[in-house]
Nucleic acid binder design. Structure first.
Length: 263
DNA sequence: CCTGTGCCCTGACAGC
DNA sequence: TGCTGTCAGGGCACAG
């Protein structure tokens, strides 16, 4: 579900609780991808939320001391004052009366408290953020030299470029006319320029439209996004020009592409 | 070191 | 209706 744009939209929608203070925490589940800390209450109660930011697909909720790290996995949601429902795993009660709930049907996400976020073992491994100035055609052109991966696997590799997921990579490769099967090392300089431009463009456009909601994704106010209406190939049988969309598995992930246009 | 393959978990849907 | 198989937006441990 949530790739960079969706996570950014969740972070944006959580802006309203910056400055609020945590009153209490209730943990209802033993473990998600990571074990849930039964003593989360002791670590969080009384702390103010200083800032909330996105790093790759991780949500960082900075507190007075330490940081709450949330990953949404495939089906995770952070909901403000949502109706109680199945798969609510953590409730964070704020002193202003509002409640932040982590819900996740598949339990592929996690909620952990990290007293020293600067040394976080997940964040340490991440590659360049595609929406920063560090992500340039020059950087991409250099990075692909040492890779033996396919274009699809390369762009999905969070240690190279972070934040892209299966949907956006399919769409990006279509827009750039590049086959997902090609070796990343064969990327031309022209293509690196095109890729960087399209990646930044599609991510910004998706964020502006509230992300993509295929089934589960919602922001903190339970609002769906509408970028799914802009898809050219993901989940499609043909593109807008009537070209047949092909489907195959690459690296275990469903890959949609137009073999007639993507070389 | 790098890369590809299972696997974590639940729900939705197709086909019988 | 209900069973079974397949698939799903992520990312880890592990084997080669």
């Amino acid at each position: 579900m949530p790739e960079l744009p969706e996570v950014q939209c969740v972070v944006n929608s959580l802006g309203v609780i910056v400055g609020a203070t945590i009153q209490s925490v209730k943990v209802h589940t033993a473990r998600l991808r990571e074990p849930l800390d039964a003593a989360l209450q002791d670590k969080l109660a009384g702390q103010a939320i200083r800032a909330i930011e996105r790093r790759s697909k991780y949500i960082l909720i900075h507190l007075d001391e330490g940081c709450l790290v949330v990953h949404l996995g495939m089906t995770g949601k952070l909901l403000l004052n949502g109706q109680r429902q199945k798969h609510d795993h953590v409730d964070i009660q704020l002193t202003d009366g509002s409640r932040l709930t982590y819900n996740d049907a598949r339990k592929f996400g996690f909620v952990v408290f990290d007293p020293k976020i600067s040394e976080n073992r997940y964040l340490r491994l991440l590659g360049v953020e595609p929406l920063t100035d560090a992500f340039t055609p020059q950087w991409l052109f250099e990075a692909r030299k040492v890779s033996r991966q396919s274009m699809k696997t390369f762009l999905l590799d969070q240690k190279k470029v972070c934040g892209l997921g299966n949907i956006y990579v399919c769409e990006i490769l279509y827009l750039c006319g590049i086959s997902p099967l090609r070796k990343a090392s064969e990327m031309s300089e022209t293509e690196s320029v095109l890729l960087v431009r399209e990646i930044k463009k599609i991510l910004l456009k998706a964020i502006s439209l509230g992300g993509s909601s295929i089934s589960d994704y919602r922001d903190a106010h339970n609002q769906q996004g509408s970028f799914q209406d802009q898809f050219h190939v993901y989940g499609k049988q043909e593109d807008r020009l009537g070209n047949a969309v092909d489907y195959l598995k690459i690296g275990g992930r469903g890959t949609y592409w137009v073999s007639d246009l993507q070389k």
